[in-house]
Simulated scan of single mutants.
Amino acid sequence: MTSTETSSPILHGRRGASIRLRDGVVLLAADGVQRRIPVAAIERIDVHGPKGRRLAVVLTGEEPVAYHLRCRSAPAVHEFAQAVQRALPVRDTDEPRPDGAGLVTEEPLERAAPNRVRQLWWALGGVYVLVLVLLVVTGAGVVPVLLWVAAPEAIGGGGFGVHIGWKLVREAWGMRTRGITVEGRLQRSHWYNSVEQYTYAYVDNQGEQRELTTSGGGAERAEITYDPADPGTAQVGRGTTGWLVFGLVLILLLGPLLLAGVWCAVVGVAALGGIER
Rank of each mutant, 00 (worst) to 15 (best):
M1Y: 04
T2D: 10
T4K: 13
T6V: 08
G13M: 02
G16V: 00
I19V: 15
V26I: 02
V26C: 05
V26H: 07
L27E: 00
L28S: 02
A29C: 04
A30V: 09
G32H: 09
V33F: 03
R35A: 12
R35I: 01
R36E: 05
P38I: 00
A40C: 05
I42P: 10
G49S: 03
P50H: 03
P50D: 07
K51V: 06
R54Y: 04
R54K: 10
V58E: 13
T60A: 04
E62P: 04
E63D: 12
P64K: 08
A66C: 04
L69R: 06
C71K: 03
R72Y: 03
S73M: 06
A74W: 10
P75K: 07
A76M: 04
E79P: 02
A81M: 09
Q82L: 14
V84N: 03
Q85A: 14
L88Q: 05
D94F: 14
P96V: 12
P96W: 09
R97L: 15
D99H: 08
G100V: 12
E110L: 11
E110R: 13
A112V: 15
N115S: 08
W121R: 04
A123I: 01
G125W: 02
G125R: 01
G126Q: 01
L130Y: 02
L130D: 03
V131H: 01
V133Q: 00
L134C: 09
T138P: 01
G139H: 01
A140I: 02
V143C: 05
V143M: 14
P144D: 07
L146N: 05
W148H: 15
W148T: 09
V149A: 14
A150V: 01
A151M: 10
P152A: 06
P152W: 11
A154M: 13
G157Y: 11
F160Q: 03
F160W: 10
G161F: 14
W166I: 02
V169H: 04
A172C: 08
W173E: 13
M175K: 15
M175W: 04
T177W: 07
R178T: 07
G179H: 06
V182P: 07
V182D: 09
E183G: 14
L186Q: 09
W191D: 12
N193F: 08
N193M: 09
S194C: 02
Q197S: 06
Q197Y: 09
Y198S: 06
V203Y: 12
N205D: 15
G207Q: 11
G207L: 12
R210D: 06
E211W: 12
T213A: 11
T213L: 08
G217M: 11
E223N: 09
E223T: 07
E223Q: 13
I224N: 05
P228Q: 08
A229D: 11
D230A: 14
P231I: 11
T233A: 10
A234I: 14
A234F: 07
V236D: 09
G239V: 12
G242C: 04
W243R: 10
V245M: 13
F246E: 03
G247C: 10
L248F: 08
I251V: 15
L253I: 12
L254T: 14
L259F: 14
G261A: 03
V262I: 15
V262Q: 06
W263R: 03
C264R: 00
V266S: 01
V266D: 02
A270N: 13
A270I: 00
A270P: 02
I275R: 02
I275K: 00
